[in-house]
Design a protein around this nucleic acid. Sequence first.
DNA 1: GCCCGGGACGAAAATATCTTTCATTTCGTG
DNA 2: CACGAAATGAAAGATATTTTCGTCCCGGGC
Lengths: 311, 311
Amino acid sequence: MTHDVKEIFGSGGASPAPPAPAALAAKVRTLAPSMTRSMQRVAEAVAADPAGCAALTVTGLAELTGTSEATVVRTARLLGYPGYRDLRLALAGLAAQQQSGRAPAITTDIAVDDPIADVVAKLAYDEQQTLADTAAGLDTVQLAAAVTALAGARRTDVYGVGASGLVAQDLTQKLLRIGLMAHAHSDPHLAVTNAVQLRSGDVAIAITHSGTTGDVIEPLRVAFEHGATTVAVTGRPDSPVTQYADHVLTTSTARESELRPAAMSSRTGQLLVVDCLFVGVAQRTYDAAAPALSASYEALAHRHRATRKGP
Amino acid sequence: MTHDVKEIFGSGGASPAPPAPAALAAKVRTLAPSMTRSMQRVAEAVAADPAGCAALTVTGLAELTGTSEATVVRTARLLGYPGYRDLRLALAGLAAQQQSGRAPAITTDIAVDDPIADVVAKLAYDEQQTLADTAAGLDTVQLAAAVTALAGARRTDVYGVGASGLVAQDLTQKLLRIGLMAHAHSDPHLAVTNAVQLRSGDVAIAITHSGTTGDVIEPLRVAFEHGATTVAVTGRPDSPVTQYADHVLTTSTARESELRPAAMSSRTGQLLVVDCLFVGVAQRTYDAAAPALSASYEALAHRHRATRKGP
DNA sequence: GCCCGGGACGAAAATATCTTTCATTTCGTG
DNA sequence: CACGAAATGAAAGATATTTTCGTCCCGGGC
């Protein structure tokens, strides 16, 4: 299977993704790193005060951010809207949602001297936010396509290193439980070696938050070139890894701080995606999956002691 | 120019009434009687399908209702907005609110025939719930004690098998990053073998949702009996594992269903606890942790490709 | 029955707003 | 230090919105 040259702008097809309603804040955070300085200023202003910005015209927002109309429009496009007009509409929607109780609550970063109770609250809140954002920003078409590919795969390889390696293993464990042939690779050499074996009908999944981890991109590229269906789970939909991905599943990340770097918090969103993949596949292959799930549960029963404490 | 349509009702002032956010439907009903035929058609269309109308331009809405642009604008004015543009913004807000209001319908279990979008929503919701419950139920005194023990530990062993094994590894990875001597064990034999080495001042952490996993209880018991400080992260605060735990950290679990067994969903709460432990320790050992975090980040930099996708 | 005033209504001009184009500037690179 | 590519903004071009103004319709008085 050949793949045509990707267009310079548009980052992998602009139109198929419909604009987001409440996923805007997430989208801003997701795409901000790939934005130019001026665009970031615009995106920032928009994320900081949706209601205020919704009241502004292109010119107004351009002046507020010290940029030009063209830049504002460009930012709107990057965020997935046809133009500023539509971004503005989405902004109004977001403002209304925030108004009606679904407050985004501007939590502060975790500080060194925060009491432990605050740490718990902030972490829980951040992770909830990540889940909500990831869910809102997930492209269900891509997800469905990935599920279909998985459900019919001869075998599935999952690549991930570091924290993402654990996510890869989580996915693998789950898929194995419902009878799929899945394997997680964290050794780059072995991963590439195995990727060569893949062919059409097989699936390769790369998990990397930054989308730039060479150790993960390489096996995915090999799998891609050997005709396997490739999936990328990444926080950066325009990162290198997506070059070799038939389907891109985007995760969202919470604000990062010194005590909680992005590489660590990305896990939450990735796991949600993994769960979605798993449940999706389990649905499609229900007749086979249900008994397999029960069987693996039964097999573990004897490893557990009586429920009650004490002798 | 001297008198506009607006004077029909009291409110003699110019425009003291700010546009309505969600009160739009009510306003339409209130003002409908005082409207002309064409205006009523416009108002009706707007009230019937806010989302649809928000997507239309003046001309579009005029055509849809079989009227003219001027009439549409007049209707917008009558409803209290400066012009159609603002009505449209309010419409978008209303649509967004209605959209989000429909959300709580996801309280049911995941069914085999749920569309993929519902699966995403339900999973995200469940996991958010788990986070909230876990955070609410976490005993901060126990947590603080565990953190203190970790921060001063000579070495730390973490036990977990299956899905919990990944959580154990996650914790280990994090602790290693800030300079602690931590090791995750998923092999029960090796775990026990190593547990024998522990003594007072060391920490052993067992992670098991059911609290009945013998392979994890056993090493914790050995560690406990050798004088190590022991911590249990479990969903069952009265389960056997807590017998040998100095500190018990309780996680909450979402409703389980056939497609989403407890053993799989417990992960979310466990990871929150793990993050809390990590951040807590990082706070206590900040002077050592901060440089260590930066260092591990730098060390990985060369493993990443250039951020931009391009060829 | 016919004429007249007053408001409803829409066509089109006028204006505001958004989008595109293109020349300039900026920045990284060899 | 020059080169080229990307970023940026000014202004032209395209749309959308608002205003203007004339027509049409309705009901009442002569």
